[in-house]
Design a protein around this nucleic acid. Structure first.
Lengths: 198, 198
DNA sequence: TTCGCTATTGACATTTATGTTAGTAACCTT
DNA sequence: AAGGTTACTAACATAAATGTCAATAGCGAA
């Protein structure tokens, strides 16, 4: 029927759709990431998205993988810089918090958990695993290291969800949680170093 | 028409509905807390809930207030016990974590934030405010006190959402996050005490 | 007992998200 | 240029959630 649009490669179509979905997620929340809304952003129909992703949950899973890759790439860079002395511990904290907040990680992941779609979180868990192996001064895998990473991630997630609301109400500066996380991570790095030297 | 059920007082009806809604929230997540599902649990129709709560978002707000009261009452008790020496710091941590996890606080709270329903969170924020005034040995209101409370709450929220998934994948025991929170809160209490004596 | 109030319901309307299908046309290969 | 593959669309179908409304009947008050 009528005027068919210019054809895109399946990859280009998927990437455009995923970028649009991510922006939609960040701007207006997970519940607004619908086939119709995403399609409208890239000038297609929702049937087109079903063609490329198979189903709505297929789009969700693809979005999870897409966000994981994007976000973990950023954090990995910060860690590398930190190890070579170019970056600070605070950079790691900021990038982790941003990944959950500004990048939409918290919205996506908590939505997945709350809707029982836990499988979609596999890529991000794998990515965190990889980050833990990279973080710190060397490759040893202490229990402590996992503990401290867990605490950092949990605080980042919590902060992205309710940090603004809560710190505002308590009269705290917006980056109060980041300050706490920074302190804790610095203590942790110190501990790891000593433990290794001993 | 036909067979009308036995009439309940508005309060009894509301309380039954709210308890059902809370259980539904805990068991199957926020998206399953619909008028129809809640009504089915108490043997009524969804039109009945609309009669009592005005709208679906009215039910949500009432649920938020209901959960806040229930949960904060528990935590407040733990704090009182802790001050009289009957309870431990760990009790406070456990109750806070349970409030978000087993009591459904995290599901409700993050659901409200993600759906842009932030107003419904007022009662919880107020309750946290009240708790902060109670916590610790005395009534002084240091910045630090707020900081540490914020960290505790954020970790509890994060843990409720993805703690099981993440700690499991990292090979950590399930209560790893609680252990960390306990340590931090003990340090904090020590700091507050010293600051006050000085 | 009678009367008024209202808790309760069934039937209907609306909106929205997801999914299906057949047909069209753009692009690549030959 | 011809033909096949498939990206793309419109139209339809379906299911679920919310909301409206008139009618019924339980329950307390007079």
């Amino acid at each position: 029927m009528s005027i068919a649009k210019r054809r895109l490669s399946p990859e280009a179509s998927r990437n455009m759709a995923l970028a649009a979905a991510r922006n939609l997620l960040i701007e207006t929340g997970p519940q607004s990431v619908t086939l119709k809304a995403v399609a409208a952003r890239i000038g297609r129909t929702h049937a087109n998205l079903l063609h490329h992703f198979g189903s709505a949950s297929g789009l969700q899973k693809a979005l999870a993988a897409y966000l994981s890759a994007e976000v973990c790439g950023m954090i990995a860079q910060a860690i590398v810089k930190s190890r070579t002395g170019e970056g600070t511990v605070r950079d790691i904290v900021d990038l982790t918090f941003d990944a959950f907040d500004k990048q939409g990680g918290a919205a996506l992941w908590s939505w997945m958990m709350l809707t029982g779609n836990e499988d979609a979180l596999d890529p991000i868990v794998d990515a965190i695993h990889a980050l833990i192996d990279d973080i710190g001064e060397d490759g040893h895998e202490d229990q402590e290291k996992h503990d401290d990473t867990l605490a950092l991630v949990l605080m980042a997630l919590g902060d992205a969800l309710i940090g603004e609301r809560l710190s505002g109400s308590l009269g705290l500066p917006r980056d109060s949680a980041r300050d706490m996380a920074e302190r804790q991570l610095e203590d942790a790095l110190e501990r790891w170093k000593c433990g290794h030297e001993a």
